[in-house]
C-alpha cells in the first residue's frame, strides 16, 4: 500500500501540526495574584466564593449582571463580574473555576464552572451536613 502509506504519513504530520498549534491556543491555570499580573490575558482561576461579601445580582433590573467576590486557596481576594445569569448553584458550590480576564481591578468572567460538593466528593457526606440524611438531635441527654 504505497499511496495509502504516503497519505497516512501526511495525515500523521498534519495531526502533529494541529495538536502543536492547539497547544499554542491553550490558556493557563492561575491564582488571583498571577492573574492580576497579566491583565487582558485569558486565564483560568480556581477560587471559592467569598461568602462574607454579598452576591450582587438583581434579575429584575439586569439579569445579565453578576458581581461577587472570590478567594483563592492562597487567600487572595478579587471582585468578579459576569455578564450572564447567576450560575444555578453558585451559593452551594465549594469551588469555582473562573474563566476570563483581569482588567481594571475586576476579573471579567466569561464562564463560571461550579463544583458542587455533593457531586464530587464523598467526604462531604462524612460530616452528614446533607439535609435529609440524619436528623441530629438538638438537645444533649
Amino acid at each position: 500500500m504505497k499511496r495509502t502509506q504516503l497519505i497516512l504519513l501526511i495525515g500523521i504530520a498534519v495531526c502533529i501540526g494541529v495538536l502543536l498549534s492547539f497547544l499554542k491556543t491553550t490558556s493557563t491555570y492561575d491564582t488571583v495574584e498571577t492573574a492580576r499580573k497579566k491583565p487582558g490575558q485569558f486565564v483560568h482561576v480556581m477560587a471559592k466564593l467569598d461568602k462574607s461579601s454579598p452576591i450582587q445580582y438583581d434579575a429584575l433590573n439586569n439579569p445579565n449582571y453578576l458581581r461577587f467576590a472570590a478567594i483563592d486557596s492562597l487567600g487572595q481576594r478579587m471582585i468578579v463580574e459576569y455578564n450572564n445569569a447567576k450560575p444555578e448553584n453558585l451559593e452551594m458550590s465549594d469551588r469555582l473555576v473562573l474563566k476570563g480576564r483581569y482588567s481594571d481591578s475586576v476579573f471579567l468572567c466569561k464562564e463560571i464552572q461550579t463544583k458542587c460538593p455533593s457531586k464530587y466528593k464523598e467526604e462531604e457526606a462524612k460530616g452528614l451536613k446533607h439535609p435529609g440524611s440524619v436528623p441530629l438531635p438538638t438537645t444533649q441527654p
Partner: peptide
C-alpha cells in the same frame, strides 16, 4: 435592563426577566 459594557467579543445579555 441596564446596558452593561460588554467585554471584547462577548455576547451577553442573553437572559430576559419576565414579570
Amino acid at each position: 435592563g441596564f446596558l452593561t459594557p460588554l467585554g471584547k467579543g462577548e455576547n451577553p445579555r442573553q437572559n430576559l426577566t419576565l414579570v
